[in-house]
Design a protein around this nucleic acid. Structure first.
Lengths: 172, 172
DNA sequence: TCCTAGATAGGAATCGTTCGTAACTAGCCG
DNA sequence: CGGCTAGTTACGAACGATTCCTATCTAGGA
């Protein structure tokens, strides 16, 4: 589990302002707030979530601005996107080397670190496909929340049949 | 590069029919065709792509049916989904152990195999998050197609600024 | 302080995906 | 082999996420 370190956040904000300015992009109030929101979150918020959070401090922000800013940050390498499924892209400020645990049912994504996995040696065949910017491990499974809901399957060859459709519906 | 092995396809179709039937789900013409399409493709098609392909043989299929079938196949473990970004889920019949190379710009996804990467040892911390069904490596970079378009960046600290917005627009 | 390229708000538009419903049909039963 | 019925399908409308359009604003250099 990661905790929010105040010092780290400020440091991130500074870094953000510098990179953005260096890129010749204007540092607007909105952009700062959007980035601040990301920097203080340890989750992987959707654009919508960022929007709602920022809206509390800057009531007039538009969802469009949030999206534009988020993509820009991604292009600048300040955040990463985690296209989970088809239920909204998620953004990740943690650009340190890390890996992901993804729940196959609820879509939850958690980071985890592992020095061992950081330095994976990739096969030659990969180089033929294109350049390699990063390599991370993606672990899939059922998170603690979802695990207990497993039913005893039909004991056929395959483990489960269609116990429940993977959660894809709105919650609100 | 992978090639389409006719024998392998038929084998997959048989396996498909068996699993589906065992699950108490009806084996309809549409479902067979949809699966056949997936089984003969080495790419990772979007639902839309599968729809168009199947439509050539079964002109009346509805996109809705394709989606329902695809999710069902996923729930049965016959195909995997590759939520690339926010541009449409992709489906993958290759359920053998494999890893992915994802182009950060065009979204292309290619499989690659590596005996070495198959047996990764995961850290203990992962177990605390939930059960582990599979672990695969996701390599990100620019594919051969996209690489040449790199422009010489501003030579600042960061490699690129915003040379081009990552491709997210329709093509048709 | 002034100017201007670049940014914003807001609503309409788009695209992928799902729902609601009435018409089918696979697979079981006799 | 024909009938039944639960599970499926087609289709259009509905939805949610993301992007576009454009008139208005503003960061930051001169």
């Amino acid at each position: 589990m990661q905790k929010s370190d105040p010092g780290r956040s400020e440091q991130r904000l500074d870094h953000f302002a510098k990179v953005v300015r260096d890129a010749g992009v204007k540092v607007t109030h909105q952009r700062l707030e959007i980035f601040r929101e990301l920097a203080t979150t340890e989750q992987h918020p959707t654009a919508e979530a960022v929007f709602r959070a920022v809206q509390r401090r800057v009531p007039t922000v538009s969802l469009d601005t949030v999206y534009r800013t988020l993509w820009m940050l991604r292009d600048l390498g300040l955040v990463a996107t985690l296209g989970t499924k088809g239920e909204g892209v998620r953004f990740d400020v943690n650009i340190d080397r890390h890996h992901h645990y993804v729940c196959m049912r609820c879509g939850l994504v958690r980071d985890f670190e592992s020095r061992t996995l950081d330095g994976l040696r990739l096969p030659e065949s990969v180089k033929a496909l294109g350049s390699v910017v990063e390599a991370q491990v993606e672990v899939r499974g059922l998170c603690a929340e979802c695990t207990p809901k497993m039913k005893t399957a039909k004991s056929s060859t395959k483990p489960a049949v269609t116990p429940q459709r993977t959660q894809r519906k709105k919650t609100s």
